[in-house]
Design a protein around this nucleic acid. Structure first.
Lengths: 342, 342
DNA sequence: TTGTATGCGTTATCAT
DNA sequence: ATGATAACGCATACAA
């Protein structure tokens, strides 16, 4: 590959000044005489000079790059979070490098790059942060912010919703609305958020003498559809379902549409979790537990700012964000069915 | 900021060898005696040595970083594309740095970073690539791949659907289905894809003696909802709508649900564009023009491969991907209404 | 096989 | 105000 860029030395030669002077012209606040500066700028323009940021990284041990590790952007929750992160970090003068991790294996490919590019911090937006993965990350010695998975270890920062509360709120609401046969459809059963939501839900239901049916699948539309089919085939169909995320809930509702398996839709109450934009779309009008995304993102950003300011404190380690019920019609009047079959 | 990482020199000192030897141990194919290598690896382990990739970038003029410039990940089309890109590039040994650009202003902040981090290529996934933006990018001298916006200039690579065809297909289909009063709801009227879709749609409609109503807004759900409200308030309501993307179409259908303004939903046919996952969700069951996303991504990846192999040819400049109609019920039996109002 | 020396493009320090 | 020099961490050509 041929030489792509002119260096400050090239510019210096053309302008007849020293390399340091060129550096000063682009550095900002140092003093350069107007005539010289003009000459340098002209030379730079002619050579299409673009300052290289990499040497600075080596000198300062700061790349201004934050790694965002995701397991899937198909979930609108995560793509929104990512977008917000990018905007905020960009304003802070930082870049976002996004990595995709599907399994612990793919981590082996990713880990060396995180350190290789000297990213200043890692934001894990993995729905499942396994112990292996966690260890891989921590071994790198890079500050790790875990989004959605609660962690205890010190030196690690975790931000999550109060997922137990989410489950409790859902159960309480569904029972208040008249639900008697409760069900939970969740994501992977090794996912901490899923576990907490399920636990909070079950505990609250049991307070009312109800033991919910529990099914786990993926955090996807398809997962919801699959498990709903199972539920609707049961002899005692549930009349109130809490889904561990909105996509699952939508998959459930879709299955209902397609099969019309429930004769009296008014009696099926569905609650999701996340409050993604699609939840408020009219045909679903999904009651859901709203995660305070903004609070979560704000928190993550504030930790990043502290990392850059080098003012992190012990108590910054764990952060739990409140969540609350957003009541829409999917749990009040039940799930709607179309006027005619498709 | 304190020194974060051990360097190859640190490892060399501890292992009692020269820095070059350490380099060789991590470099791969060069010869190092087993005993020495073991000693070096042990020292590296003890110091938690992570090779720094940045010097290599300076030496080779290759960062293995590809910039992905987006205007919004809320659109599932783009978040899917991004995810796919990340996966594919990761397999190629490359990283993706994502930048968010909302206006030509925010470009000024982004442009110096693209060159500053020495990204090897820029993928623009902007829905609107303005002339100013284009110029900013090209000035950097970095290979530019425009996703969705057709470009003529040489040295630039563009990949797009055949958007004229998309419009034609939609018009033909809607008319075949009995549509007589056609409407088009599009995104920004400076967006090339939007212009082409509108043009193809209008031309085909006129062949059949129909002049469609044309409305433009944003490429969002909200935009569709807004314009639908206008349409439904017209004295002569349209009976067939082509929306320039699926989100718009879903916004239209939602407005219909909420207002129940159209008395006989069987007579309203809606077609979208993109075929995002949500399009096949039961309540919408949206007929749409499927963009061959995979073909587009494959093409982009193949250009990137050529960039890395330095084998780009003249004819790689422009690429247009076929698209085709996916017929679902929103255009066949019309848009569904719920069994009862919400 | 291993060590020495040089260079990549900056910024910062020191001297002029 | 400007120039010379060192340093960041690595890879490579060359010497041993």
């Amino acid at each position: 590959m041929t030489k792509r860029y002119a260096s400050s030395t090239d510019v210096a030669n053309l302008a007849g000044v020293s390399q340091s002077t060129v550096s000063r012209c682009f550095g900002g606040d140092t003093k350069v005489s107007p005539e010289v500066k003009a000459r340098v700028l002209a030379a730079a323009e002619k050579l299409a000079y673009r300052p290289n940021l990499l040497p600075r990284i080596m000198l300062t041990d700061q790349s201004k790059i934050v790694a965002f590790v995701t397991g899937g952007l198909h979930n609108p929750f995560y793509s929104r979070v990512l977008e917000e992160f990018i905007k905020r970090l960009q304003d802070m003068g930082c870049q976002v490098m996004v990595f995709h991790v599907e399994s612990d294996d793919s981590l082996d490919a990713v880990a060396p790059r995180l350190s290789g590019y000297r990213v200043d911090a890692i934001v894990s937006a993995l729905s499942v942060l396994t112990d292996t993965a966690l260890e891989q990350f921590t071994k790198l010695g890079i500050p790790l912010i875990s989004f959605n998975t609660r962690l205890q270890k010190k030196g690690l920062y975790s931000i999550s919703s109060d997922n137990m509360l989410a489950g409790q709120l859902a159960a309480r609401h569904l029972i208040e609305e008249g639900g008697q046969r409760l069900a939970f459809i969740g994501g992977p059963d090794n996912n901490p958020a899923n576990i907490d939501r399920c636990h909070g839900f079950t505990k609250e239901a049991q307070k009312h003498g109800i033991t919910p049916v529990i099914l786990n699948d993926e955090f996807t539309f398809a997962g919801g559809a699959r498990q709903a089919a199972k539920l609707f085939a049961m002899s005692q169909q549930p009349d109130a379902i809490f889904c561990a995320d909105d996509l699952i809930a939508m998959g459930v509702i879709d299955t209902l549409w397609r099969t019309s398996g429930i004769k009296h839709p008014d009696t099926l109450r569905v609650v999701g979790c996340d409050d993604i934009p699609q939840a408020s779309w009219a045909p679903y009008d999904l009651s859901t537990i709203q995660q305070d995304e903004n609070a979560m993102i704000n928190r993550a950003i504030s930790i990043l700012e502290k990392i850059y300011a080098d003012t992190l404190e012990e108590e910054d380690g764990q952060y739990m964000v409140e969540c609350h019920m957003v009541v829409r019609s999917s749990s009040k009047t039940g799930v709607l069915l179309p006027a005619r079959t498709i």
